[in-house]
Structures are given as structure tokens and as C-alpha cells.
């Protein structure tokens, strides 16, 4: 069901005006509302995208429970677990937009990119996440040695952008984490059984059909790191439950052969993380880091998480 309307609920008048203008650019009708009581007036039988501030999360959840043809996008200014918990429970709430404070609206590019994609069903290229003129590199990874070289490549790339040492190492860790998942967790045999997940220390060599691909790029304001595997086995609930485990104090989950902290790394190292899963075909995990942030602000900045399945 392709959404034909956007229901926009935002109590701040200035933000509402701005978001209405931005979302109008998606090409579908936008219905702005300041008060959640207005929602019921506009709920007809047409599929829609409901965009709202997380302060109205309970109303959003109630509508998702009642209507199967509505998908939601929420924005939040806090790093608490409530929104992630709701997202874990509601498959049609897969987009959380973090923002620095209640005084600023969500990032314009991010909400436009997200909602446009929900409406059209298209998967835009990674370049769409950066300003034109970006630069970067792409590598295919088959062995642990390839992985380590690529991680060092990411660190060197960040170094050239004059990013602080801690940020470089954090993004190096992030790349390593994504590659470990793509190389050891993702590959399965013909019977669907994991091939390498039981031993992370093994010196494996992935075939062309199994090889992971890493991309790293920057437009000078953001750094983007993306890793693709060819198996599409990342379940949606693992994303949100993994992040929640991180907020709960990093309790490990060894049941999948690793430490079960991969999602925590993704959550901690990126301001926007995007999980793109085509079941059985392809998983792409992308993290975006904003270069103008200092660490003090970055630590407390609410994170954005997007999960696209299918």
C-alpha cells in the first residue's frame, strides 16, 4: 500500500510550518496539525505516513494499533529508551529522527529523504545522503586481512579530514564491527545454516558471492560508512533490541556467536543509522557522523535510526 498522504503532527507552530514546506516536496498531500485531537478528523481509509513528535508517541502508537495501512515517523529530543521500545513492538514504526533539542526541528534532509523513500518505495543511492561533490572509496572484503586494511583505510580517510583522533578510532571500530557482521554473521550455506558465525577468530576467505563491500565517503560536513552483505538476514527486531541492550548497560548476548554488542556500536558511533534489508538478498548498514559536532554534544545527541525492510 503506497501512502498517498502525510499526516503531520507537531505542536510547535514554527516547526510545523517548516516541516509542512519540506514534506510538500515529497509530492503528496501534507495535512498539518498542531493538536492530536485533530488526527481523528483526517483518518480516512487512505494509506498514509504519520509524522509526529515523540511527545505524542502514545497517540501515534494507538493509531498504528488501529490502522494497518499507516506507517509512522517520529522525532525525539531525548536519548531515552521509550521510542526504541515502541519501535521494537510496532513494525510500522521504523523511523526515529533524533534532534539536538525540542527547540529545533528534525534535520530537513533526513525527513525528506525518509518520507520520500517511504512513499515511492525507491532506494536512492548513497550519494543522496551527501552533498554533491563528495569523495570516498569502495572496497570488496573477503579475508580478515582485507578487513583490517579497510579499517585502517577508514581511519586514514578520517585523518585526512582532520577529524580528532577519538573520532577516527571510533569510526574505525564502527567499520570493523559492520565488516565482522557482514563476514562472519551474514553468510549461510544452502540450507540456511550460518557458515562462519561459530568462530570469529577463524581465518576465512569469502567467495565472490559472499564478499562484503564497504564504502566510506565524506562531503566535508558528514562522514558516511556503509557495509553491504549479500544475504539479507538481519531481522528488524535485532536492530532495536540490540540498541536497547546498549542503553541498558551493555549486557552481552553470546547466543549468536559474537558479543551481541554490534548494534550498540552502530548506535553509539553514528548520528544517523540506516538499515536496509532485502530479505535473502542483501543487507546494507549505513552510519552517518556529523563532522562539526564536538564529542561533548555528540554523546548526548539523540540518535536517528531507520529500518527499511523489503
Amino acid at each position: 500500500m503506497v501512502p498517498t498522504r502525510i499526516l503531520l503532527l507537531e505542536r510547535n507552530k514554527l516547526h510545523l510550518r517548516k516541516l509542512t514546506r519540506v514534506l510538500t516536496c515529497t509530492g503528496v498531500e501534507v495535512i498539518p496539525m498542531e493538536d492530536k485531537s485533530e488526527l481523528s478528523l483526517h483518518l480516512d481509509d487512505q494509506p498514509a505516513v504519520l509524522c509526529a513528535d515523540a511527545v505524542d508517541l502514545s497517540s501515534v502508537v494507538a493509531i498504528l494499533d488501529a490502522r494497518q495501512d499507516i506507517r509512522a515517523v517520529v522525532w525525539t529530543a531525548s536519548q531515552d529508551r521509550a521510542v526504541l521500545e515502541r519501535a521494537l513492538d510496532h513494525p510500522r514504526l521504523s523511523h526515529i529522527l533524533g534532534r539536538a533539542s525540542p527547540d529545533v526541528p528534525p534535520r530537513e534532509w533526513e525527513i525528506l529523504w525518509t518520507v520520500r523513500r517511504m512513499i515511492t518505495g525507491e532506494r536512492p543511492s548513497l550519494a543522496s545522503l551527501l552533498h554533491w561533490g563528495y569523495t570516498g572509496f569502495k572496497e570488496t572484503v573477503r579475508t580478515p586481512r582485507d578487513r583490517d586494511l579497510c579499517v585502517e583505510g577508514v581511519v586514514r580517510f578520517c585523518e585526512r579530514l582532520n577529524t580528532p583522533g577519538r573520532v577516527r578510532e571510533m569510526l574505525g571500530e564502527f567499520a570493523h564491527e559492520l565488516l565482522m557482521n557482514a563476514m562472519y554473521d551474514a553468510p549461510v550455506d544452502a540450507a540456511g545454516q550460518p557458515k562462519y558465525a561459530h568462530d570469529r577468530k577463524a581465518q576465512i576467505e569469502l567467495s565472490d558471492d559472499e564478499a562484503a563491500v564497504i564504502r566510506c565517503a565524506s562531503d566535508g560536513t558528514k562522514i558516511l560508512i556503509s557495509v553491504v552483505d549479500r544475504f539479507g538476514r538481519l531481522p528488524r527486531d535485532k536492530v532495536f533490541s540490540g540498541m536497547l541492550r546498549g542503553l541498558d548497560g551493555g549486557i552481552m548476548d553470546k547466543s549468536y556467536g559474537g558479543a551481541g554488542l554490534g548494534m550498540v556500536y552502530v548506535y553509539k558511533a553514528s548520528v544517523v543509522s540506516i538499515f536496509d534489508v532485502e530479505p535473502g538478498k542483501r543487507t546494507e548498514v549505513t552510519g552517518i557522523y556529523e563532522l562539526d559536532l564536538n564529542q561533548r554534544i555528540f554523546r548526548t545527541l539523540p540518535r536517528s535510526v531507520h529500518v527499511f525492510i523489503g
Partner: peptide, 17 residues
Amino acid sequence: HRPATTFTGNVWDDPTK
């Protein structure tokens, strides 16, 4: 300000194509 640097990375192809 530090001197500008030149990247040597290759720009990837469009992954959606």
C-alpha cells in the same frame, strides 16, 4: 588551519544501478 589535502580514494559507482 592545516593545509588542504588531496584524496586518492576512488569514487564508487551508483550501488542502485
